[in-house]
Design a binder for these strands. Structure first.
Lengths: 176, 176
DNA sequence: CGCGCGATTGAGTAATTTCAAATCTAGTGG
DNA sequence: CCACTAGATTTGAAATTACTCAATCGCGCG
């Protein structure tokens, strides 16, 4: 997507910090001050909103090679509304907003890179919106396992239900 | 968001083209080759997907000061999956991908600007996803008119229903 | 064995859809 | 000013879908 020389690569790497988390651990809790965006090296995380009755609603899963954080809180330097938690042991490179800005202004290629990533994220979100508009529970489920066959092996179905917006009972009954 | 000198402004403006459309006119039709992204100067458009049975599903509305196109088709230079049509007479500045790239490489501020816009779009899409996860038809509707009170005056309710993902009859019955 | 977790099943209830018909409203021509 | 029409909105009633609450099942592990 973007090619870097060796020295550019070193420059970039210097802005990141390696952070590791264990399964079930929270990377961000709603209410936290969000300092970092996380690049997932390995593992699997969920970004979710928890409502008054403590029910979780999963906005997205993120795995290898994806960037994740509460973007609104990160860029606007507000407190997190979402939480980010690990579904597996997870290794990340974290990037503070300060370093993000340094990276962008120091190396135009990186600003371009982040733009491409953000666009990809936006397009992905639109696809998800479309699936809510066009598809019922079964079609959304089939859609999901087609696009991410691995997920079914990596997370319990009850968790998939929180992503699909159906109850775990309904999801279970789709098996027929 | 980004401050430009007069000469920078002229440079930027030179990459755009003024295009006007009338109410009900299509700016993009599914299957088209998508050359431009459109900055809405005035008016109102809908970005939507039409399924096999010719039912429309509105992915987003765009009005003054927003950017809209089939982003996937635009950036990847593929044929449009979505259509973009006017709900009002609409004036736009169009920007070809070629000029977009020239703009970004010629003026880093602009790449930064587009990054901020893309992030805002991504965050907006996430909010919309969340509303499908957390809210029933009524709550989604109230959410929408809170966030965009103007829409109710500018589009028929049947069109709002296509955005909210409910039948127009159900939307009508929410009035009680 | 017995616990804990995930998945399934059953039954009743609530929300939403579909199809059909009735109303309402703004704009047009007479 | 009135009648007429097209589009938008509402209403009714039956059918469907998904939800909740509760109980049960299956299985791996100390």
């Amino acid at each position: 997507m973007v090619k870097l020389t060796d020295e550019e690569f070193d420059f970039v790497i210097g802005h990141f910090e390696l952070k590791s988390f264990k399964k079930t651990q929270f990377i961000i809790q709603a209410g936290d001050h969000v300092k970092d965006v996380f690049f997932i090296l390995s593992g699997l995380v969920k970004l979710f909103y928890m409502n008054e009755s403590a029910k979780q609603h999963i906005v997205s899963f993120a795995m290898e090679d994806w960037w994740e954080t509460d973007f609104n809180a990160y860029y606007a330097q507000r407190r997190a509304v979402f939480s980010l938690a690990c579904l597996e042991n997870t290794e990340t490179y974290s990037l503070s907003l300060e370093n993000f800005n340094k990276l962008c202004s120091g190396l135009q290629k990186m600003e371009h890179f982040f733009l491409m990533k953000s666009i990809a994220g936006h397009i992905g979100s639109q696809e998800r919106i479309l699936s809510f508009l066009t598809s019922d529970a079964r079609a959304r489920y089939e859609n999901l396992i087609n696009k991410s066959p691995g997920l079914l092996q990596r997370v319990p179905k009850a968790t998939l239900a929180l992503y699909l917006g159906v109850s775990r009972e309904t999801l279970s009954r789709l098996g027929s």
